[in-house]
Write a protein that binds this DNA or RNA. Structure first.
Lengths: 179, 179
DNA sequence: TAACTCATGTAATTGGTTACATGATTCG
DNA sequence: CGAATCATGTAACCAATTACATGAGTTA
Protein backbone atom coordinates (compact mmCIF):
# COMPACT_ATOMS: atom_id res chain seq x y z
CA UNK A 1 0.00 0.00 0.00
CA UNK A 2 2.91 2.33 -0.51
CA UNK A 3 1.33 4.21 -3.41
CA UNK A 4 -0.87 5.73 -0.72
CA UNK A 5 2.16 7.11 1.02
CA UNK A 6 3.89 8.21 -2.15
CA UNK A 7 0.79 10.27 -2.98
CA UNK A 8 0.65 11.69 0.56
CA UNK A 9 4.30 12.74 0.27
CA UNK A 10 3.57 14.43 -3.01
CA UNK A 11 0.50 16.20 -1.60
CA UNK A 12 2.57 17.38 1.37
CA UNK A 13 4.82 19.17 -1.07
CA UNK A 14 1.80 20.76 -2.80
CA UNK A 15 -1.97 20.12 -3.19
CA UNK A 16 -2.88 18.65 -6.57
CA UNK A 17 -5.54 17.00 -8.72
CA UNK A 18 -5.36 13.38 -9.83
CA UNK A 19 -4.25 14.60 -13.21
CA UNK A 20 -1.46 16.72 -11.72
CA UNK A 21 -0.30 13.79 -9.63
CA UNK A 22 -0.26 11.54 -12.67
CA UNK A 23 2.10 13.97 -14.37
CA UNK A 24 4.30 14.20 -11.27
CA UNK A 25 4.46 10.42 -11.28
CA UNK A 26 5.87 10.54 -14.81
CA UNK A 27 9.01 12.00 -13.25
CA UNK A 28 10.12 13.00 -9.77
CA UNK A 29 8.59 10.63 -7.22
CA UNK A 30 7.46 8.38 -10.04
CA UNK A 31 11.06 7.38 -10.63
CA UNK A 32 10.88 5.50 -7.35
CA UNK A 33 7.23 4.49 -7.45
CA UNK A 34 5.65 4.50 -10.93
CA UNK A 35 1.87 4.81 -11.11
CA UNK A 36 -0.77 5.25 -13.81
CA UNK A 37 -3.57 7.80 -13.62
CA UNK A 38 -6.12 5.01 -13.19
CA UNK A 39 -4.35 3.69 -10.14
CA UNK A 40 -3.95 7.19 -8.71
CA UNK A 41 -7.67 8.01 -9.02
CA UNK A 42 -8.53 4.76 -7.29
CA UNK A 43 -6.18 5.39 -4.38
CA UNK A 44 -7.32 9.02 -4.01
CA UNK A 45 -10.95 7.86 -3.70
CA UNK A 46 -9.98 5.30 -1.07
CA UNK A 47 -7.91 7.81 0.89
CA UNK A 48 -10.71 10.39 0.83
CA UNK A 49 -13.00 7.68 2.24
CA UNK A 50 -10.44 7.12 5.00
CA UNK A 51 -10.15 10.86 5.68
CA UNK A 52 -6.49 11.17 4.75
CA UNK A 53 -7.17 13.67 1.97
CA UNK A 54 -9.96 16.11 1.15
CA UNK A 55 -10.98 17.52 -2.20
CA UNK A 56 -12.39 20.80 -3.43
CA UNK A 57 -14.04 21.05 -6.82
CA UNK A 58 -12.91 23.83 -9.09
CA UNK A 59 -15.03 24.71 -12.10
CA UNK A 60 -13.08 25.86 -15.10
CA UNK A 61 -14.41 27.15 -18.38
CA UNK A 62 -13.28 25.69 -21.60
CA UNK A 63 -11.93 22.66 -19.81
CA UNK A 64 -13.15 19.93 -17.45
CA UNK A 65 -13.74 20.55 -13.77
CA UNK A 66 -10.86 19.83 -11.50
CA UNK A 67 -10.79 18.15 -8.10
CA UNK A 68 -7.92 19.44 -6.03
CA UNK A 69 -6.81 17.16 -3.23
CA UNK A 70 -5.06 18.30 -0.06
CA UNK A 71 -3.67 16.21 2.77
CA UNK A 72 -5.61 16.32 6.08
CA UNK A 73 -4.15 16.19 9.61
CA UNK A 74 -5.18 12.50 9.72
CA UNK A 75 -3.28 11.94 6.49
CA UNK A 76 -0.20 13.66 7.87
CA UNK A 77 -0.42 11.51 11.01
CA UNK A 78 -0.65 8.38 8.89
CA UNK A 79 2.40 9.48 6.91
CA UNK A 80 4.36 9.98 10.12
CA UNK A 81 3.28 6.60 11.46
CA UNK A 82 4.38 4.93 8.24
CA UNK A 83 7.69 6.81 8.08
CA UNK A 84 8.55 5.71 11.62
CA UNK A 85 8.16 2.02 10.78
CA UNK A 86 11.20 0.08 9.60
CA UNK A 87 11.23 -0.56 5.85
CA UNK A 88 11.54 -4.15 4.82
CA UNK A 89 13.80 -5.02 1.96
CA UNK A 90 11.95 -4.65 -1.31
CA UNK A 91 11.93 -7.78 -3.48
CA UNK A 92 13.78 -7.32 -6.73
CA UNK A 93 12.36 -9.01 -9.78
CA UNK A 94 14.69 -8.87 -12.72
CA UNK A 95 13.56 -10.23 -16.07
CA UNK A 96 17.01 -9.48 -17.33
CA UNK A 97 18.81 -11.61 -14.74
CA UNK A 98 16.46 -14.53 -15.44
CA UNK A 99 17.20 -14.09 -19.13
CA UNK A 100 20.91 -14.23 -18.45
CA UNK A 101 20.40 -17.57 -16.70
CA UNK A 102 18.53 -18.75 -19.79
CA UNK A 103 21.59 -17.79 -21.83
CA UNK A 104 21.96 -19.57 -25.13
CA UNK A 105 22.73 -17.15 -27.92
CA UNK A 106 25.24 -14.35 -27.38
CA UNK A 107 23.84 -12.10 -30.12
CA UNK A 108 20.43 -11.47 -28.56
CA UNK A 109 21.97 -10.89 -25.15
CA UNK A 110 24.42 -8.45 -26.67
CA UNK A 111 21.70 -6.43 -28.37
CA UNK A 112 19.61 -6.44 -25.22
CA UNK A 113 22.52 -5.38 -23.05
CA UNK A 114 23.48 -2.50 -25.35
CA UNK A 115 19.90 -1.20 -25.34
CA UNK A 116 19.80 -1.52 -21.58
CA UNK A 117 23.05 0.33 -21.16
CA UNK A 118 21.75 3.19 -23.31
CA UNK A 119 18.56 3.41 -21.23
CA UNK A 120 20.57 3.55 -18.01
CA UNK A 121 22.87 6.24 -19.43
CA UNK A 122 19.88 8.33 -20.47
CA UNK A 123 18.25 8.10 -17.06
CA UNK A 124 21.56 8.84 -15.36
CA UNK A 125 21.92 12.02 -17.41
CA UNK A 126 18.47 13.16 -16.28
CA UNK A 127 19.32 12.49 -12.64
CA UNK A 128 22.64 14.26 -12.86
CA UNK A 129 21.02 17.26 -14.51
CA UNK A 130 18.47 17.40 -11.68
CA UNK A 131 21.18 17.18 -9.09
CA UNK A 132 23.17 20.04 -10.64
CA UNK A 133 20.07 22.22 -11.00
CA UNK A 134 18.30 21.62 -7.69
CA UNK A 135 21.04 20.62 -5.28
CA UNK A 136 24.17 22.57 -6.23
CA UNK A 137 25.32 22.73 -2.60
CA UNK A 138 24.35 19.47 -0.83
CA UNK A 139 26.13 20.29 2.41
CA UNK A 140 23.68 23.14 2.97
CA UNK A 141 20.62 20.88 2.72
CA UNK A 142 18.37 20.01 5.61
CA UNK A 143 14.91 18.53 6.28
CA UNK A 144 12.81 17.31 3.35
CA UNK A 145 15.26 18.72 0.81
CA UNK A 146 17.98 16.58 2.30
CA UNK A 147 15.73 13.54 1.99
CA UNK A 148 14.89 14.28 -1.63
CA UNK A 149 18.54 14.73 -2.46
CA UNK A 150 19.45 11.43 -0.77
CA UNK A 151 16.71 9.67 -2.73
CA UNK A 152 18.09 11.15 -5.94
CA UNK A 153 21.58 9.98 -4.95
CA UNK A 154 20.17 6.47 -4.73
CA UNK A 155 18.85 6.84 -8.26
CA UNK A 156 22.21 8.03 -9.52
CA UNK A 157 24.12 5.20 -7.85
CA UNK A 158 21.56 2.71 -9.18
CA UNK A 159 21.98 3.86 -12.77
CA UNK A 160 25.75 3.82 -12.49
CA UNK A 161 25.58 0.29 -11.14
CA UNK A 162 23.31 -0.69 -14.05
CA UNK A 163 25.84 0.67 -16.51
CA UNK A 164 28.72 -1.10 -14.75
CA UNK A 165 26.82 -4.40 -14.95
CA UNK A 166 26.15 -3.94 -18.67
CA UNK A 167 29.82 -3.16 -19.22
CA UNK A 168 30.88 -6.34 -17.46
CA UNK A 169 28.50 -8.35 -19.64
CA UNK A 170 29.68 -6.65 -22.82
CA UNK A 171 33.33 -7.19 -21.90
CA UNK A 172 32.75 -10.86 -21.13
CA UNK A 173 30.83 -11.49 -24.35
CA UNK A 174 33.13 -9.51 -26.59
CA UNK A 175 36.22 -11.26 -25.19
CA UNK A 176 34.58 -14.57 -26.11
CA UNK A 177 33.35 -13.38 -29.48
CA UNK A 178 36.87 -12.55 -30.65
CA UNK A 179 38.33 -15.79 -29.39
CA UNK B 1 4.43 -13.71 -16.76
CA UNK B 2 8.12 -14.09 -16.11
CA UNK B 3 7.69 -16.55 -13.25
CA UNK B 4 6.73 -18.98 -16.00
CA UNK B 5 10.08 -18.45 -17.64
CA UNK B 6 12.03 -18.50 -14.41
CA UNK B 7 10.52 -21.93 -13.68
CA UNK B 8 11.28 -23.12 -17.20
CA UNK B 9 14.90 -22.03 -16.79
CA UNK B 10 15.11 -23.90 -13.51
CA UNK B 11 13.54 -27.05 -15.03
CA UNK B 12 16.01 -26.87 -17.92
CA UNK B 13 18.79 -27.17 -15.38
CA UNK B 14 17.07 -30.17 -13.75
CA UNK B 15 13.54 -31.68 -13.48
CA UNK B 16 11.87 -30.97 -10.16
CA UNK B 17 8.69 -31.07 -8.10
CA UNK B 18 6.83 -27.95 -7.00
CA UNK B 19 8.32 -28.41 -3.58
CA UNK B 20 11.85 -28.67 -4.97
CA UNK B 21 11.29 -25.55 -7.04
CA UNK B 22 10.02 -23.68 -4.00
CA UNK B 23 13.27 -24.45 -2.22
CA UNK B 24 15.32 -23.40 -5.23
CA UNK B 25 13.40 -20.14 -5.23
CA UNK B 26 14.54 -19.52 -1.68
CA UNK B 27 18.01 -19.01 -3.11
CA UNK B 28 19.61 -19.19 -6.54
CA UNK B 29 17.13 -18.03 -9.17
CA UNK B 30 14.86 -16.79 -6.39
CA UNK B 31 17.31 -13.99 -5.68
CA UNK B 32 16.23 -12.46 -8.98
CA UNK B 33 12.63 -13.63 -9.01
CA UNK B 34 11.19 -14.52 -5.61
CA UNK B 35 8.18 -16.85 -5.55
CA UNK B 36 6.12 -18.68 -2.94
CA UNK B 37 5.19 -22.35 -3.21
CA UNK B 38 1.52 -21.42 -3.74
CA UNK B 39 2.38 -19.29 -6.73
CA UNK B 40 4.68 -21.98 -8.12
CA UNK B 41 1.99 -24.69 -7.93
CA UNK B 42 -0.45 -22.40 -9.70
CA UNK B 43 1.97 -21.62 -12.52
CA UNK B 44 3.00 -25.29 -12.91
CA UNK B 45 -0.67 -26.27 -13.34
CA UNK B 46 -1.16 -23.55 -15.94
CA UNK B 47 1.99 -24.51 -17.84
CA UNK B 48 1.04 -28.18 -17.87
CA UNK B 49 -2.32 -27.16 -19.35
CA UNK B 50 -0.38 -25.26 -22.01
CA UNK B 51 1.90 -28.23 -22.68
CA UNK B 52 5.11 -26.51 -21.63
CA UNK B 53 5.83 -29.01 -18.87
CA UNK B 54 4.78 -32.60 -18.12
CA UNK B 55 4.61 -34.38 -14.80
CA UNK B 56 5.17 -37.91 -13.60
CA UNK B 57 3.84 -39.06 -10.27
CA UNK B 58 6.22 -40.83 -7.96
CA UNK B 59 4.87 -42.76 -5.02
CA UNK B 60 7.04 -42.72 -1.95
CA UNK B 61 6.50 -44.56 1.28
CA UNK B 62 6.58 -42.77 4.55
CA UNK B 63 6.09 -39.47 2.80
CA UNK B 64 3.65 -37.80 0.39
CA UNK B 65 3.60 -38.60 -3.31
CA UNK B 66 5.70 -36.38 -5.49
CA UNK B 67 4.93 -34.91 -8.90
CA UNK B 68 8.11 -34.38 -10.85
CA UNK B 69 7.86 -31.83 -13.64
CA UNK B 70 10.06 -31.79 -16.73
CA UNK B 71 10.18 -29.24 -19.53
CA UNK B 72 8.68 -30.34 -22.90
CA UNK B 73 9.93 -29.40 -26.40
CA UNK B 74 7.09 -26.85 -26.54
CA UNK B 75 8.29 -25.41 -23.25
CA UNK B 76 11.86 -25.17 -24.53
CA UNK B 77 10.59 -23.43 -27.68
CA UNK B 78 8.65 -20.94 -25.58
CA UNK B 79 11.74 -20.25 -23.50
CA UNK B 80 13.76 -19.58 -26.65
CA UNK B 81 11.06 -17.30 -28.03
CA UNK B 82 10.98 -15.33 -24.79
CA UNK B 83 14.78 -15.14 -24.51
CA UNK B 84 15.05 -13.70 -28.03
CA UNK B 85 12.69 -10.83 -27.23
CA UNK B 86 14.15 -7.56 -25.99
CA UNK B 87 13.69 -7.04 -22.25
CA UNK B 88 11.95 -3.87 -21.26
CA UNK B 89 13.26 -1.95 -18.31
CA UNK B 90 11.82 -3.30 -15.09
CA UNK B 91 10.02 -0.72 -12.96
CA UNK B 92 11.70 -0.13 -9.65
CA UNK B 93 9.49 0.47 -6.66
CA UNK B 94 11.40 1.59 -3.63
CA UNK B 95 9.61 2.10 -0.35
CA UNK B 96 12.85 3.33 1.06
CA UNK B 97 13.30 6.11 -1.50
CA UNK B 98 9.72 7.27 -0.92
CA UNK B 99 10.43 7.28 2.79
CA UNK B 100 13.51 9.43 2.25
CA UNK B 101 11.31 11.95 0.46
CA UNK B 102 9.00 11.89 3.47
CA UNK B 103 12.02 12.74 5.62
CA UNK B 104 11.24 14.40 8.91
CA UNK B 105 13.10 12.78 11.74
CA UNK B 106 16.75 11.78 11.34
CA UNK B 107 16.69 9.11 14.05
CA UNK B 108 14.24 6.75 12.38
CA UNK B 109 15.96 7.13 9.02
CA UNK B 110 19.29 6.39 10.67
CA UNK B 111 18.04 3.19 12.28
CA UNK B 112 16.39 2.11 9.05
CA UNK B 113 19.50 2.82 7.02
CA UNK B 114 21.76 0.89 9.36
CA UNK B 115 19.48 -2.15 9.24
CA UNK B 116 19.37 -1.88 5.48
CA UNK B 117 23.11 -1.66 5.20
CA UNK B 118 23.51 -4.78 7.32
CA UNK B 119 21.01 -6.70 5.13
CA UNK B 120 22.92 -5.67 1.99
CA UNK B 121 26.24 -6.70 3.52
CA UNK B 122 24.83 -10.10 4.47
CA UNK B 123 23.46 -10.75 1.01
CA UNK B 124 26.70 -9.55 -0.56
CA UNK B 125 28.67 -12.03 1.55
CA UNK B 126 26.43 -14.87 0.29
CA UNK B 127 26.91 -13.80 -3.30
CA UNK B 128 30.65 -13.49 -2.95
CA UNK B 129 30.87 -16.90 -1.32
CA UNK B 130 28.89 -18.37 -4.25
CA UNK B 131 31.14 -16.69 -6.73
CA UNK B 132 34.30 -18.01 -5.08
CA UNK B 133 32.88 -21.53 -4.80
CA UNK B 134 31.18 -21.96 -8.18
CA UNK B 135 33.03 -19.62 -10.51
CA UNK B 136 36.67 -19.55 -9.42
CA UNK B 137 37.86 -19.03 -13.00
CA UNK B 138 35.35 -16.81 -14.82
CA UNK B 139 37.42 -16.49 -17.99
CA UNK B 140 36.92 -20.22 -18.61
CA UNK B 141 33.11 -19.98 -18.51
CA UNK B 142 30.85 -20.44 -21.50
CA UNK B 143 27.18 -21.06 -22.30
CA UNK B 144 24.65 -21.21 -19.46
CA UNK B 145 27.38 -21.10 -16.83
CA UNK B 146 28.55 -17.81 -18.23
CA UNK B 147 25.00 -16.48 -18.06
CA UNK B 148 24.58 -17.60 -14.46
CA UNK B 149 27.84 -15.99 -13.48
CA UNK B 150 26.89 -12.72 -15.17
CA UNK B 151 23.56 -12.75 -13.33
CA UNK B 152 25.40 -13.27 -10.07
CA UNK B 153 27.72 -10.39 -10.95
CA UNK B 154 24.63 -8.20 -11.25
CA UNK B 155 23.61 -9.27 -7.77
CA UNK B 156 27.03 -8.46 -6.39
CA UNK B 157 27.15 -5.03 -8.00
CA UNK B 158 23.60 -4.34 -6.79
CA UNK B 159 24.44 -5.11 -3.18
CA UNK B 160 27.60 -3.03 -3.32
CA UNK B 161 25.59 -0.16 -4.71
CA UNK B 162 23.04 -0.59 -1.91
CA UNK B 163 25.82 -0.39 0.67
CA UNK B 164 27.33 2.68 -1.00
CA UNK B 165 23.94 4.42 -0.92
CA UNK B 166 23.48 3.63 2.78
CA UNK B 167 26.96 4.96 3.49
CA UNK B 168 26.19 8.23 1.72
CA UNK B 169 23.03 8.59 3.79
CA UNK B 170 24.82 7.79 7.03
CA UNK B 171 27.62 10.23 6.24
CA UNK B 172 25.17 13.00 5.43
CA UNK B 173 23.09 12.45 8.56
CA UNK B 174 26.02 12.01 10.90
CA UNK B 175 27.69 15.16 9.61
CA UNK B 176 24.51 17.05 10.43
CA UNK B 177 23.99 15.32 13.76
CA UNK B 178 27.33 16.52 15.06
CA UNK B 179 26.87 20.06 13.87
C1' DT C 1 -8.06 16.93 -40.12
C1' DA C 2 -5.47 14.37 -37.02
C1' DA C 3 -3.02 14.28 -32.85
C1' DC C 4 -2.26 16.08 -28.39
C1' DT C 5 -3.58 18.25 -23.81
C1' DC C 6 -6.77 18.64 -20.01
C1' DA C 7 -9.61 15.98 -16.87
C1' DT C 8 -12.06 12.10 -14.79
C1' DG C 9 -13.12 7.81 -14.41
C1' DT C 10 -15.04 2.20 -14.94
C1' DA C 11 -14.30 -2.74 -15.99
C1' DA C 12 -11.74 -6.82 -16.72
C1' DT C 13 -7.82 -9.29 -15.98
C1' DT C 14 -3.29 -10.72 -14.16
C1' DG C 15 0.23 -11.68 -10.79
C1' DG C 16 1.26 -12.01 -6.25
C1' DT C 17 0.40 -12.27 -1.08
C1' DT C 18 -1.79 -14.06 2.97
C1' DA C 19 -4.45 -17.23 5.29
C1' DC C 20 -6.00 -21.80 5.73
C1' DA C 21 -5.88 -27.01 5.19
C1' DT C 22 -4.06 -31.86 5.64
C1' DG C 23 -1.08 -35.57 7.35
C1' DA C 24 2.92 -38.66 8.12
C1' DT C 25 7.83 -38.59 9.86
C1' DT C 26 11.84 -37.08 12.06
C1' DC C 27 14.64 -34.30 15.22
C1' DG C 28 15.70 -31.90 19.65
C1' DC D 1 5.80 -33.04 23.32
C1' DG D 2 6.53 -29.49 20.12
C1' DA D 3 8.77 -27.94 16.00
C1' DA D 4 10.55 -28.71 11.62
C1' DT D 5 10.64 -31.27 7.09
C1' DC D 6 8.27 -33.31 3.18
C1' DA D 7 4.49 -32.58 -0.10
C1' DT D 8 0.38 -30.63 -2.27
C1' DG D 9 -2.85 -27.61 -2.74
C1' DT D 10 -7.53 -24.04 -2.24
C1' DA D 11 -9.66 -19.52 -1.24
C1' DA D 12 -9.79 -14.74 -0.43
C1' DC D 13 -7.82 -10.67 -1.21
C1' DC D 14 -4.94 -6.79 -3.02
C1' DA D 15 -2.20 -3.91 -6.19
C1' DA D 16 -1.21 -2.98 -10.65
C1' DT D 17 -1.88 -3.31 -15.73
C1' DT D 18 -4.62 -3.01 -19.85
C1' DA D 19 -8.50 -1.80 -22.29
C1' DC D 20 -12.30 1.17 -22.81
C1' DA D 21 -15.01 5.60 -22.35
C1' DT D 22 -16.15 10.68 -22.84
C1' DG D 23 -15.61 15.37 -24.53
C1' DA D 24 -14.01 20.24 -25.22
C1' DG D 25 -9.93 23.01 -26.78
C1' DT D 26 -5.38 23.60 -28.85
C1' DT D 27 -1.56 22.80 -31.90
C1' DA D 28 0.78 21.02 -36.22
Amino acid sequence: MALDHAILVSLTERAASGYDLARRFDASIGYFWPASHQQIYKVLARMQEAGWVESTLQEQDGRPDKKTYAITPDGAAELDRWAAQPTEREALRSDFAVKLRAFRDARTVLADTRARRAAHAERLAEYEASEARFYPDPSALDGPDLGSWLALRGGILGERQGIAWCDEILTALEARGSR
